[in-house]
Nucleic acid binder design. Structure first.
Lengths: 220, 220
DNA sequence: TTCGTCATGTAATGGGTTACATGATTAC
DNA sequence: GTAATCATGTAACCCATTACATGACGAA
């Protein structure tokens, strides 16, 4: 029970499933991998970690200066607290991964769910994408009828705003449709782990800048 | 001072500037005109109205069954409370309209600001649009460098999510650019009131369904 | 008379940020 | 030695939603 926010919990479990980490790093990963959609501060992260430990899904390991494998500069600053997923934690996360209801495709959740599609089985992926799409279509319907009822008393700018909003949603629907189709057409089934080859969505993909730049982090 | 949420306050003042209204109707207008971006519940609206009254920006008129002009069925149910903008309220709203800082183009504010562009002077409009655009470009930059730093350890889905996010932002930037250009090219200057002619954004515009449908409203 | 919608409110709760407090370690 | 970054936390606050309480009015 104990509805502690869901998405933060989910994301933390998911990231820790990949490898143990301490809070500070966790937050950075959180805000870069998933951060396009959501950013969390320590003020929410640390308390969340505590409750997850209390739940038995994580263990704290106070790795105070010891054990360094390779010639890596070091991995033992202060008394860092490394969080590791327990067996129950993993099991719990697996359950969350399998969910296909509104808790998977509503606005706040969809982003994180998608981010962990790599660990999600294909049929769940498809169901989540379809759920999301019909949610958006439903919303489009509402917007359209609402627009139809009010268009005459709205001025140009409000109208343009509405139009742009609808267009964005329509675009997202098309995106989802493409994803669904390419999931259906997809060949290999590999339920977990980050696979190597390209071809996730059959979409154009890629054309970005390349600049190393160790600046980052905002807030708190 | 008293940072009571800003956007709700702004929207309420703006809507009441057009005509006096009671809370219930106000909320409906709020959630249809601006609602693509934000929805408010009575739990926030009514307290907000109270503080605006306390501030001297609104007056409450308890229109308890009286005065009906035309043969309109009626406009006097229970003791409705009609809110009306005072002179100071109008002045205050005018000041808010003139603001061009971050309080105008940050995510939470931009939508409402745009919705009231009809009452905003052209140069303020342009400055707000430009501010918004550079904010988004800044964000794009961060996303790009962050992507460049992390792309190899991200799996396909995370990457696709990132890609889609960036594409959306890029699209919004293009939208803003078009709007800015058409503002610059625009002929007539009419600072307030909803003007008639088309050509707000020089964009394609229009192709939607038409269905009357008196169903609406969700929540609370 | 009962249901739906109009209409106004409030208290509890939730979910999160900000600001603060503290301190170790590294790079200059 | 000092600034930046790594690192962990907490308390105060903010903003809004949920759920609830209340009640009038119109239509079936």
């Amino acid at each position: 029970m104990s509805r502690r926010s869901d998405v933060l919990e989910f994301a933390v479990l998911g990231l820790l499933r990949e490898s143990p980490m301490h809070g500070y790093e966790l937050r950075k990963r959180l805000n870069s991998s998933l951060g396009v959609f959501r950013a969390f501060s320590y003020g929410s992260l640390y308390p969340c970690l505590k409750t997850l430990v209390a739940q038995g899904w994580l263990t704290e390991e106070t790795a105070s200066a010891s054990q360094d494998g390779p010639a890596v500069p070091l991995a033992g600053r202060r008394a860092k607290i490394v969080y590791r997923l327990t067996a129950e934690g993993k099991e719990h996360f697996e359950e969350l991964l399998a969910q296909t209801g509104p808790e998977a495709w509503e606005d706040e959740h969809f982003g994180v769910r998608f981010a962990f599609f790599g660990q999600t089985s294909r049929d769940v992926r498809v169901r989540v994408l379809e759920g999301r799409r019909s949610r958006l279509e439903e919303r489009l319907d509402k917007m359209r009828t609402s627009l139809a009822r009010t268009r005459e008393r709205l001025d140009d700018y409000t109208l343009e705003l509405q139009r742009h909003g609808m267009e964005s949603v329509e675009r997202e629907v098309r995106w989802l449709t493409e994803l669904i189709e390419s999931e259906r057409a997809g060949r290999d089934e590999r339920p977990s782990g980050a696979a190597g080859s390209q071809e996730t969505g059959g979409l154009p993909r890629d054309r970005d800048s390349t600049r190393p730049d160790p600046s980052d982090d905002t807030a708190n």
